[in-house]
Structures are given as C-alpha cells and as structure tokens.
Nucleic acid binder design. Structure first.
Lengths: 239, 239
DNA sequence: GTTGCCATATGTGTTGACATATTTTGCGGT
DNA sequence: ACCGCAAAATATGTCAACACATATGGCAAC
C-alpha cells in the first residue's frame, strides 16, 4: 500500500487553475509538462489548431523527447490534442456541436454534484455563499466586474464538487471543464447572462441551505440548461 | 494538395467488446495492446491487484517495450491500472466506495442517454425492443438464461447510447462501464434483481416508445438507483 | 509565370543500450 | 531456526542515435 507522495514542485504559472490538480501520472517530470501544457491549452495561450512540436517542447523544458511524448500521450487521452501519425500533435478545436454535447453533460454532472453536496455537507455550509451571491455579487454584476464575479463563481463550483465527495465525478467534471473553460468567459458577457446566472445560483443555494437536495439538483440543471440555450441563441457571436 | 485518407486496421478480437471501440490513439500498434489489455482487465482475465510487467507484455506481443509503455500510460489515464514509480503497473482494485461513486454517475449519465435517445430517434425505434423485453426476455429471466439476458441488455444499452448521438457522453459511459463491467454480472444474480431490471426497462421503453423523453430519463435513473440500493444491501455477498 | 517533379530538410516513430530503483537470494551471526 | 545485511538479479526509467514519413524549396519544362 503505497502512500502517495505529494509532489507539485514547480508549474505555478500565471494561471489560476482551480480544479483538482491531482492527475494520475507516474512518469517522473512528465506530470509537470502535462499540467503546464494543459493549462496553456485551456486558456488558449496555445490556440486551437496550433502544432505542438516535440523537439521544441523538449528544448523548452530541458528534458528528453521521451517525456514530452508521454505528456502528449496523456493530453491525447484527455482529448486536448489530436495526434496525427508522423505529423505531430495539434491542439483540438472545439466546434459548436461538441460544445453542446459538453453542456448536456455539464447539466447532469453538475446537477449531481449539487445534489450530493447538499446531502453530504451540513446545510449551514452554504449560508455564507448564499449571502455573497445575494448581496455583493449583484453589485459586481451591475458594475461589470466580471473577473471577480468569475472568481467567486469558480470558488463555489470547486466547493460544491469537494463537498460532493465523489472522486470519479470530480475527475469527469475536470475533463469536461478544461475543454470549455474559455467558452464560459464568452457566455458570461452575453446580454443578461451574468445576472441570470447569479439569480439561478441564489435559488440553488437557497435550496442547498435548506437541505433540499433534489431541488438543488433540479435548479442547477435548469441553470445550465438556460446557459446552453443562450449559447445556442448567440452562437454566431461566440465561435 | 491532396488530402490523404488515413485508414486504421480495425483489430477484431475474440472479446465481444460492444462499446465504442474508437479510442483516441495514434502510436502505431499500441492501440491494439491497449484494447487487448483493457478487455482482459474488464473481464478480470487479469485479476485486480495483478502486476503487469512491461518485459513480459513486450515478449507476448512481440513488440518493443516502448509500445507497451505507451499502452500502459493510456490504461493509467483511464484509471484501469495504477503505475507506481519503479515498481510497475498493477490492475486497479475496485472497492465498494468507488463502486457507489460510479453508480451515482451511471444514474445521471445513462439517464441523460435515455433522454437524448428519445429526443433524437423516432419513437418507433423502440417498439421492437419493447416487445422483446415484454415477452421473450421474461422467459429468459424465469429460466435463468442470464447470459442471453445480459446480451440483449447490452445491445439495448449500446443502441440507446448510439441514438443519443453524443460522443462525449458515449466516451464517459465507456470509461465508467469498463470499470464495473464485472460487477453487473454479480448484481444481476441477486434475488429478484433480473426481473426487477427487466420491468424497469419495459417501463422506460414504453416512455421512449411514446416519445416522453423526460419520463424515460426519470425511469432510467430510478432503475439504476434501485440497482445501487441492491448493491448496497448485498455488498457483503459481492465484493 | 505557372506547374510538376525531385532533392533536401525537418520532425516523428522506433530501437537498443544504459542508469537507477527494487526485490530476491544467499550468507553469516546470534 | 531466525533475523539482518549485503550483493546479485530483475524490472523500470532514461537517453541518444537511427529509421522513416512528411513538408519544403528549388529547378526544369512548358
């Protein structure tokens, strides 16, 4: 029974990755490369369609190409890059149909997370968040302070997933989230979307604060459903 | 510039893997090793806790160790094996808590699949399956012909996922399914479970045949919920 | 000036040897 | 007999060179 050694030496880039950083990897060092590239891809530091050359990456990270290769294999398995034989790895492009597919998934996965979180955590847990979303957040929205808004949004999302206490679910949400991270910023700026999302979160948090797990799930799903409809309506302005 | 069509030799294997066999791989040949090992692990041909030695596998498949390594990396990413530095890869053991976590996921994922399938496919699609589950299948259950029962069960599940037409969802269901494949056989033999499952499928198919997507989702979720309860009740007899 | 072909260059895929960590074996002491 | 320690054996991790496929650029023909 090997106790897992905590290792996360470098990598802290500008990126404020919030999700569960624990990724099943063992190959020494390759994990860092994987994480770094994953972050860059998720934030479109490396744009979709860009080629990732093994030799370049090997030089940049000062490692042998083998490790880069392992990292690329991992990225490929996660669906972040596509590897074409003898031609290299290109960053996956997110088309609209896939975005919808992912939103359907988010709907049920985050709904489940909300339900489990409500069931597992004491109801008081959500009081503070509820007040934040009721009061201060409304101002942030009104003032258009979207960065801070997104920050709180993210924190709540993480808290819910942690409270849900289901590692398999957490991993899957991580996989879908890293693919659409960039989309979220574009959806939030859609007309009325930020305020709508805030109100939906307030409603959900009220259900959670009173321990109504089924209703929390229903409301979370409804929220993401409406986000998907907004995406559909304004898709020409987004992608 | 002529676009070259890439054709990949489809590895037909003895194992009757039913799920979407399309796995994002590019490294030549490693895909076959991956698929083979995946099948063996899913069916417990290789038991949980067993060590997978790279050198042995390399000899068995007559390939260099590198390719085995790539395959093992893929298996690791899928959560089928755990790689311990300098000690090798061992087949993941499924403990009860993880089984419950996965069942929670199945509940929402297959529920979503049922809903989408109902929305996408014409209602008549499900007539034949409905009749099969209403009539012949009842006899199979009564006679204890569980192999054939499971076969039809599987076919329907695949058909629903295909009709749902959501590749991301299909992939995730594949990931969770390969982990608990063996559990399903053990659950089905629990007292009254086979017949209960059959009736639940009939109810769901009726909803699907009348195009009631929301109800189909609800019923599928209810079915898997009760399966999870059975698993919980009889867990001492299963693991 | 444009098109098709061939040589060169770049980058990926593969291999085998080497380095390092772990497990096993064997020996001697208590 | 039983432990402990050390050395051999075994298996994994790493690397650098080689083989092969694809893209690039120049040159000749029209």
């Amino acid at each position: 029974m090997p106790a897992k050694a905590k290792q996360r030496p470098v990598a802290s880039r500008t990126s404020a990755r919030a999700g569960p950083k624990r990724v099943r990897r063992s190959d020494t060092g390759a994990a860092e490369i994987f994480e770094t590239l994953r972050g860059r891809i998720a934030q479109q530091e490396i744009p979709p369609g860009a080629k990732l050359r093994e030799t370049d990456l090997a030089k940049e990270f000062s490692v042998a190409r083998t490790r880069v290769r392992v990292a690329l294999t991992a990225l490929e398995q996660r669906g972040l890059v596509e590897r074409i034989p003898n031609r290299g790895a290109v960053v996956m492009r997110l088309d609209m149909s896939q975005a919808f597919h992912i939103y359907h998934l988010r709907e049920v996965l985050e709904g489940l997370a909300a339900r489990l979180a409500t069931e597992n955590a004491p109801a008081e847990t959500w009081r503070a968040e509820l007040e934040r979303f009721s009061g201060p957040m409304a101002e942030l929205v009104a003032k258009g302070e979207l960065d801070e808004y997104i920050g709180h949004y993210e924190r709540l999302r993480i808290a819910i997933i942690q409270a849900a206490d289901n590692p398999v679910l957490a991993e899957m949400l991580d996989i879908v989230f890293e693919k659409i991270q960039v989309l979220i910023r574009r959806i939030i700026i859609l007309p009325g979307r930020a305020e709508a999302g805030r109100q939906q979160h307030v409603a959900m948090l009220e259900a959670m604060a009173r321990g109504d797990a089924a209703e929390a799930e229903r409301l979370r799903r409804a929220g993401l459903h409406s986000a998907r409809l907004a995406l559909e309506k304004y898709q020409r302005y987004i992608l």
